[in-house]
Design a protein around this nucleic acid. Structure first.
Lengths: 159, 159
DNA sequence: CTGTTTTCTGCAACCGAGTTGCAAAAAGAT
DNA sequence: ATCTTTTTGCAACTCGGTTGCAGAAAACAG
């Protein structure tokens, strides 16, 4: 793990603030090879702790009205490239993002997604791998999207 | 099968034109409960005979430049509602459509789609059904999207 | 600490796909 | 032939995503 003087400084600040999360988030970005800025820290803390499920650029915009949309967009791209997030195409027409679980950098690929057609929330079934199917001769597969559309338990309950 | 006087008239015209396809397409729309108009016939013949694979609104627009985009859009919606077409969400960001095979009205649901990341064409594997996965307690599934992204044989060959 | 270089951010504008309201045109009914 | 209903074309608009550019912030060098 890399450990630079700026991070040490932040650690001291964080201890002073008695805020352990602050250190941890800073480290996460740093470990991912991303330069830590105020905006990025803000965005990361929002997506890490502020959303219970997959979120869209619009969700993030609503949660952080002080930050410009294009900046949020670019930040999401940066995070995605650094494998902090993964993109989900749930067929709602808007790109969704989801935090990659810490333990496994590449867990993001190949799992099933659930989309609720009522509340439009999308969830990851990180532990359910996509079953494979036979492909025609000559096709080379690179990636597979498996999205189950339906009604989530919460929407189901409220009838 | 319904058979109205207008259709008979068109049959006569078609025989005069020695064009069997013409009758057949007209019948298809009529059977689907869709009023037959010049534009709809034009669109149907294009999507039925003019595309080898799934197509987008933009593809249709390019193929039929004389027809307005909004009309094409509404026509596609009409056809989809009448189960002449089915919609495919292949994750390219643009809605695709594909002709439903004649023998089975509901065949459209539940099969696998292939999308080429080079040429952006999308194909139906109508005979490969989507394998199911276990869902969490409380979820009610209505539909499942299974899209394999990769390189199609044609793109693979041209290296 | 100060000046220089590099990166990031906000603004504005743009793009493409999808969508809608409305009036004219076409089709169907009487 | 006339009236009613449906369809079509036009224009405009929405919404999500995206880019160019100039100023702000961060990293770097002295």
């Amino acid at each position: 793990m890399r450990w630079c003087s700026r991070a040490v400084t932040l650690t001291i600040i964080a201890i002073a603030m008695n805020n352990k999360e602050y250190i941890s988030d800073e480290q996460t970005l740093d470990n991912a090879g991303i330069r830590v800025t105020a905006v990025r820290l803000l965005v990361w803390r929002q997506v890490r702790h502020g959303f219970s499920d997959a979120f869209s650029l619009a969700d993030l915009e609503a949660a952080l009205p002080t930050v410009d949309r294009s900046t949020l967009f670019r930040t999401l791209s940066t995070f995605t490239e650094a494998h902090l997030l993964h993109e989900i195409d749930d067929g709602t027409g808007s790109q969704k993002y989801c935090v990659c679980s810490a333990r496994d950098t590449h867990h993001c690929e190949g799992h099933v997604h659930l989309t609720c057609i009522r509340c439009h929330r999308t969830y990851c079934l990180t532990d359910v791998r996509i079953p494979s199917v036979p492909l025609p001769e000559g096709w080379a597969s690179t990636e597979t999207e498996y999205v189950v559309k339906g009604i989530c338990p919460a929407c189901n309950r409220e009838k």
